[in-house]
Measured scan of single mutants.
Amino acid sequence: ITIHVNGVTYHFDNPEEAEKFAQKMAKTYQLKMEIHNGEFHME
């Protein structure tokens, strides 16, 4: 699972971890999250 946050790329093997991380980042930084081709993009 690949997550892009403001141009920084994070890779996770565990989908649950990826989702937790994505939600935490979105909440902490008030980010808008989109999913493209199974990759999370946040800005």
Rank of each mutant, 00 (worst) to 15 (best):
F40E: 03
E34G: 03
G38K: 04
A18H: 00
Y10F: 11
F12L: 01
T28S: 05
A22F: 04
K24R: 10
A22I: 12
I35K: 02
T9E: 06
Q30I: 02
F40W: 14
M42R: 02
P15L: 12
G38L: 07
H41E: 04
N6W: 14
Q30F: 09
A18M: 04
H11R: 08
P15I: 12
H41I: 08
L31A: 09
I1N: 02
T28I: 14
V8D: 10
K27L: 11
I3M: 02
H41R: 04
F21Q: 00
V8A: 08
D13H: 09
M42T: 03
K27D: 14
E43R: 12
V8S: 09
F40A: 04
T2K: 12
P15F: 12
K32P: 11
Y10Q: 01
I1K: 04
L31I: 12
F21C: 13
N6Y: 14
G38Y: 03
F12E: 00
K24H: 13
D13Y: 11
E19G: 07
N37I: 08
H4Y: 10
V8N: 10
E17W: 10
E34P: 00
T2V: 09
K20W: 06
Q30S: 03
E39G: 03
H36S: 03
A22L: 04
I35E: 05
K27F: 08
N37G: 06
F21R: 00
I3F: 05
Q23A: 08
K32L: 13
A18K: 02
K32A: 13
E39N: 04
E43S: 10
V5I: 08
I3C: 14
E19F: 13
Q30C: 15
T2D: 12
Q23C: 15
E16L: 09
N6P: 01
I1C: 14
K24G: 02
E39L: 02
Y10A: 02
H11L: 06
K24S: 05
E16D: 11
M33G: 01
Q30T: 02
K24Y: 15
Q23V: 12
A22R: 06
I35R: 01
A26T: 03
E43L: 13
M42N: 04
A22N: 02
T28G: 03
D13P: 10
E34K: 05
D13K: 05
F21E: 01
I1T: 04
N37A: 04
F12W: 02
M42K: 04
A18L: 06
Y10T: 02
F40H: 05
Q30D: 12
N37F: 10
E17T: 08
E19I: 13
T9Q: 12
K24F: 15
I3T: 01
G38M: 05
K20C: 15
L31P: 15
K24L: 13
E16H: 09
M25G: 00
K20N: 08
G38H: 05
E39I: 09
G7A: 07
F12M: 01
N6M: 14
E39K: 04
N37R: 02
P15R: 12
H4K: 06
F40I: 14
H11F: 10
V5S: 01
V8K: 10
T2Y: 12
H4D: 03
H11T: 07
E39D: 06
H41S: 04
M25P: 00
I3D: 00
K20I: 10
Q23F: 08
K27H: 05
M42V: 05
Y10D: 00
I35F: 09
I1Q: 05
E17M: 07
F21G: 00
T9Y: 05
K20F: 09
E43W: 14
I3A: 02
F12N: 00
D13R: 07
I35Y: 09
M42D: 05
N37H: 09
P15V: 10
L31D: 15
I3G: 04
I3N: 00
Y29N: 15
H11P: 02
Y29Q: 14
F40G: 04
L31H: 12
E19H: 11
E34Q: 04
Q30V: 02
E43T: 13
E39A: 07
H41V: 08
Y29L: 13
Y29C: 15
T9R: 12
Y29P: 15
N37M: 07
Q30A: 05
K20A: 08
Q23M: 09
G38Q: 02
V5A: 05
D13N: 08
H11M: 06
E17C: 15
N14S: 07
N14L: 11
I35N: 03
K27M: 08
Y10P: 00
D13C: 14
K20Y: 08
N6E: 12
M25Y: 02
E39R: 03
T28E: 15
K32Y: 14
T28A: 12
M25A: 02
A18S: 02
V5N: 01
F21I: 01
E34Y: 13
G7L: 14
K27W: 08
G7F: 15
H11K: 06
E19S: 10
F40Q: 05
E34D: 03
K32S: 13
G7H: 12
N6R: 06
D13F: 10
T28H: 14
M25R: 00
Q30W: 11
A18C: 13
L31G: 12
E43Y: 14
V5H: 02
P15H: 08
G7Q: 08
V5C: 14
T28C: 15
L31M: 07
A18F: 07
A18P: 00
E43C: 15
H11Q: 09
L31K: 07
H11C: 15
E19L: 13
H11Y: 09
I35G: 03
M33Y: 05
E39T: 03
H36G: 02
F40V: 10
V5D: 01
V5L: 05
M33S: 02
Q30L: 04
K24M: 12
A26D: 12
N37C: 15
I1A: 04
M33Q: 01
K20L: 11
A22V: 12
I35Q: 03
E43V: 15
T28K: 15
K20R: 07
F21K: 00
H36T: 05
A22Y: 06
I1R: 04
L31T: 10
A18Q: 01
Q30H: 14
M25V: 05
I3Q: 00
M42L: 11
